[in-house]
Write a protein that binds this DNA or RNA. Structure first.
Lengths: 137, 137
DNA sequence: ATAATATCAGTAATTGTTACTACTTTTAGA
DNA sequence: TCTAAAAGTAGTAACAATTACTGATATTAT
């Protein structure tokens, strides 16, 4: 393997592993800067791309125009709140859809993604509070 | 409704309706230009966004960094060829996944998308031809 | 008709991401 | 443990997709 060690890449990977949300490159940059103040945004992008390419992290497209990254590479699905934009994991098994999909399809299906969209728990509570003008404890 | 009529918007909608693939804004622009030569790319973007917002078309994110648009707003899933980048419809029923997903989730699920990724029929054939150095009829 | 306003063309600005360049680290081998 | 090749880096410029702005035009209700 022609990969060399770098503390920048380590920090990026470590930061991602400590998060359960799905940060963007900009968020990774802002946070890794706390330990490596002069790290470059380009370095963050390059290493996120590299880590995703070699399969150590995964890149998530949720439709907000920004790439998100996830240290959890086990197969799972995502939920995106249309209110606050948060990306969270869905606690459900991965579906065996590819066999069903392949019945009417002549190419080769390699993998699939599912995104659920709606309003997350927090935003649901917030809108109830707003509607009834009360504060839940 | 504070919507006024415009031939630009009509052309955009009509072009989209005549396509079974899922063109990008740039492709829409290039084609609508054949009937309205001095239409602006900004107008295409604005109207695609407007039509998507009012639900007359849908915007598709497949992860290639470019937005695709689809005049077919009936619920269905997509396949994206990782070789040629084509976006096509999957001929399968929409799954009832939201009930299952909601069991361990406290927010409100409004809709979901599924994207299958792999190699399309054409690209499969092309790679077989390349491997065996033959031309299929 | 005409006034109000949605829409337009053209262009500038913004945003997320990638490429480039000269300098710095890492690491395998003498 | 030197040393030099290769990978990595910071900083910045470039890029591509998209959006915002501006003054002009088209549509529609009255």
């Amino acid at each position: 393997m022609n990969l060399k060690h770098s503390k920048q890449r380590d920090s990026i990977k470590e930061f991602l592993k400590g998060r359960k949300d799905h940060p963007t490159a900009a968020v990774v940059y802002e946070n890794v800067r706390k330990t490596i103040p002069n790290i470059s945004l380009g370095t963050v992008y390059r290493n996120l791309t590299l880590l995703a390419d070699i399969g150590e992290i995964s890149r998530i497209h949720v439709g907000d125009g920004v790439d998100h990254f996830d240290a959890d590479i086990s197969p799972h699905y995502h939920f995106i709140c249309r209110e606050c934009g948060n990306v969270m994991d869905m606690d459900m098994d991965k579906m065996d859809l590819e066999k069903a999909a392949g019945r009417n399809f002549c190419g080769e299906i390699e993998y699939h993604t599912i995104c659920f969209y709606g309003k997350c728990e927090k935003c649901c509570e917030a809108s109830i509070q707003k509607k009834h003008n009360v504060t839940l404890c």
